[in-house]
């Protein structure tokens, strides 16, 4: 008699194993970043409505809830970046007859790149602020 039992994936499959929970935590880092993007876009919208509206939006940013969202979004972005870069050497394997780069070097290059890009952005922001203050 052939009557196989078909196992259906349960809706809570991702709660049932620590490996799946870690995966979902990593996927969930998109949520605070999504909210942060909405916040930035609302700022842009207020900017188009004139100075008073934009200043009011800036004032709103001082709310503890929005400060917490900024902290959460930063933590989520850092967690995502660190775990992502840790996986890069497994995927970006440079090993041919002509060129070979060690996994450690690939990882280091990505870490240095991330630090340089972020420091560059910060520097640009500071320079723009100074120029604005100078006017």
């Amino acid at each position: 008699m052939h009557k196989p039992y078909i196992q259906r994936q349960r809706a809570d499959w991702w709660l049932r194993n620590p490996a799946y929970r870690r995966y979902m935590l990593r996927e969930a880092t998109a949520l605070p970043l999504f909210l942060y993007t909405l916040l930035l876009m609302s700022g842009l919208f207020q900017f188009t409505r004139g100075e008073a509206a934009f200043l009011q939006w800036l004032e709103m940013l001082r709310s503890p809830w929005l400060l917490a969202l900024h902290g959460l979004a930063l933590a989520a972005a850092l967690f995502h970046a660190v775990t992502w870069i840790a996986l890069v050497p497994k995927i970006l394997v440079i090993d041919t007859d002509r060129l070979r780069v060690s996994p450690a070097a690939v990882k280091l290059a990505h870490q240095v790149g991330a630090v340089v890009c972020n420091a560059g952005l910060l520097l640009l922001a500071v320079l723009l602020l100074r120029a604005a203050a100078g006017n």
Binding site: N17, A19, Y20, L87, I91, L92
Partner: peptide, 26 residues
């Protein structure tokens, strides 16, 4: 593949299929 990565954790022969698939994406 969404890179859950658990396949590589459970592999009894250390094949690392998650790495293989994601190199396939490249």
């Amino acid at each position: 593949c969404t890179f859950v990565g658990y396949c590589s954790e459970v592999c009894p022969k250390d094949v690392d299929p998650a790495a293989a698939i994601n190199r396939g994406k490249v």
